[in-house]
Amino acid sequence: MARQQFTAEVKREAVRLLERGDKPTTQLSAELDVPRNRLYKWRDALHTHGEQAFPGQVGRSLRKEGSEWTFLRKCTLIPTLV
């Protein structure tokens, strides 16, 4: 199984949803298909390092990353294209 990789944008959006608290973390984790502990690690990294969290992931294209495109649609960051 290939390792999941996400851009800084995706990680920040997941943390935003986590901190918004509209859903329990377990539910959010299942909906986004991201392990719960990874959401917490992303949150901690963002709080510790701010804008410097998640370096080296700026240049990836979302259109080329099918799993990230799906992830962002799940987060409702990007509407589904018709």
Score class of each variant (00 low, 15 high):
F54K: 01
Q52M: 07
S61E: 12
R3A: 15
L18F: 14
T76S: 15
H49N: 13
R43L: 06
D33K: 13
L39D: 07
P79Q: 11
D44Y: 03
Q57I: 00
G56I: 03
Q4C: 04
K64N: 15
S61M: 09
L62C: 04
A14N: 02
H47I: 11
R12V: 08
V15F: 03
F6P: 01
L17I: 06
E9S: 11
V15C: 06
R63L: 12
A53L: 06
A8G: 14
L81I: 10
R12S: 09
Q27P: 02
G59I: 03
L18Y: 14
K74D: 07
R20P: 00
L72D: 04
L28P: 02
G56D: 06
G59V: 05
V15A: 04
G21E: 08
E68R: 06
G50I: 02
R73V: 11
F71D: 00
V10T: 15
E19A: 08
S61H: 12
G59L: 10
F71M: 15
R20Y: 07
D33A: 13
L39M: 10
V82M: 09
M1E: 15
L32Y: 10
F71H: 01
V58W: 05
W42R: 04
H49T: 01
S61V: 07
A30L: 11
T80S: 13
S67D: 11
L77R: 13
L17D: 02
L62Q: 07
P55A: 01
L28C: 03
V82T: 10
K11I: 00
R60C: 02
P79F: 08
L28T: 05
K23I: 04
M1H: 13
Q5P: 01
Q27D: 10
M1D: 14
Q4G: 01
R36C: 10
T48P: 03
E51C: 03
A8W: 02
A2S: 15
L81E: 15
R16C: 09
L17Q: 14
P79M: 11
R3K: 15
C75A: 15
S29N: 05
E19V: 07
H49I: 00
L32W: 08
Q4W: 01
G66P: 05
R20F: 06
G66H: 14
T25W: 01
A14T: 09
G66A: 15
G21C: 06
